[in-house]
Every structure is written in structure tokens, then in C-alpha cells.
Amino acid sequence: MSDFFVSAQIYLPILLKGMWLTISVTLLSLALATALGLVWALFRTSGVRWLSISTRIVVEFVRGIPILVVLFYIYFVMPEFGLDLTAFQAGVAGLALTYSCYIGETFRAGIEAVDRGQVEAAKSIGMKTPLMMRRVVLPQAFRIVVPPYANNMVMLLKDSSQVSVISVAELTMQGKMLASSTFDNMTVFTLVALLYLCLTVPLNFAMRYVEVKMGQAR
């Protein structure tokens, strides 16, 4: 056991570097995926047929492809079309694109779960669609969406390990490299798992807190 702590002290600084990259990849792709997801959801619920159908096609298409393949595609194939991204950029783009579809569907479900009477009440006091969305529908949809959105967030954090396949040196990648050079698989991967938990567990608690807080305002 004391061996574990001795080795851990040596490995941790390297792994923390990877963890930092994991956090950056996650936060960046989460921000992009959320913004894009909101756009998808608004398109899907716009009532404009061609917009909603073409969005649906894009969403179904992207959701049907494994993240790994999306990442390979963006990193290895897109340069042929002149889009030459660094591994980090490609990783963020791939995660953001894939998760925008999951998050978009979550938002859409939230918007559709808002009672129709709310829309009618908003219209009946003369609100136009953008104002109604901003003041009436989205604030209520937001509450509905917190638990599934938090779920998406945690999944995104864990899926950020996938960008290691295109050589982004995030936590999992650092662990793999460290393990293959030290052969100390147990210590390294235990530390990697613990570091992920250090991120996901507080995240879950934070979301529970937000959920409870918002429940009180009803």
C-alpha cells in the first residue's frame, strides 16, 4: 500500500496535466454543444416544416454514428476538404457536434413538455414567439431539462476520454502512456479512475443542489 502512495506522488503531476486538458475539452465542447443544441431544439419546435425536418435528419444522422468515428472523420478526413484542425480542436468539434444532438433532443423534449396553455396565455397577452420563448417557455423548459442535461454533462465528461484516440493528451491518454512506460497498470488506472470521480461526483451533487433550488421556486 505504501508503494501505491509513493508511486502516486510521482504519477499525479503528469496525470493532473491530463486532467486539466480533460476539463478544458469538456467545458469547451459543453458550451458549444449547449449553444448548438438550443439551436437544434428551436429549429425542431419552430413549426417551420423544412427547418424542423432538415434538423431532424442531421440529428438522427450524427446520433447514429459512434463518437470515435466522428472524431476520426473530423481529424483524418476533413483535411482532405481543406479543414485542417489540430487534434484538440478536432476533439472539441467532434464531442460538441455529437453532444449537441443529444442535448438538442433533451431541450426539445423540455420545450414540448411545457403546457400548451402557457403558450396560449403568452399569446393572449400579445407576445410574439421570441418574447414568449424567452419569458415563458424556455424558463419552464429549463427546469424540466435540468436532470437530463446534468446526465448529458457527466456523460460528456466521461466521453471526453475518447479524444485520446486522435492523440489529445487528456487524462485517459496520459494514463495509458504512463502505464505503458512504467508497467504499473494498477496504480496508474486506479488514479485515473479516482481523478474522474473527483470531477463527476461533485458535478452530480451540484446538479442535485440546482434541482432542489429550482424546485423550491415553483
Binding site: 396553455g117 396565455a121 393572449s124 397577452i125 400579445g126 407576445m127
Partner: peptide, 28 residues
């Protein structure tokens, strides 16, 4: 021409006074 609904349709995320203020404040 305003409308009053069978099921009230108040905005649940806003207080009574905010519900009343919503139209004059943001529409008018």
C-alpha cells in the same frame, strides 16, 4: 382583447404580481 382561461394558465415560475406585470412590462 384579453382572454381568461378555464385552467387559469398563470405562469408558474412567476409570482402573482409578476404574472400581472408581464404583459404591460414586456409587450406594451
Amino acid at each position: 382583447v384579453s382572454m381568461v382561461f378555464q385552467r387559469f394558465n398563470l405562469f408558474p415560475h412567476r409570482t402573482a404580481i409578476e404574472n400581472v406585470m408581464e404583459g404591460p412590462r414586456y409587450v406594451l
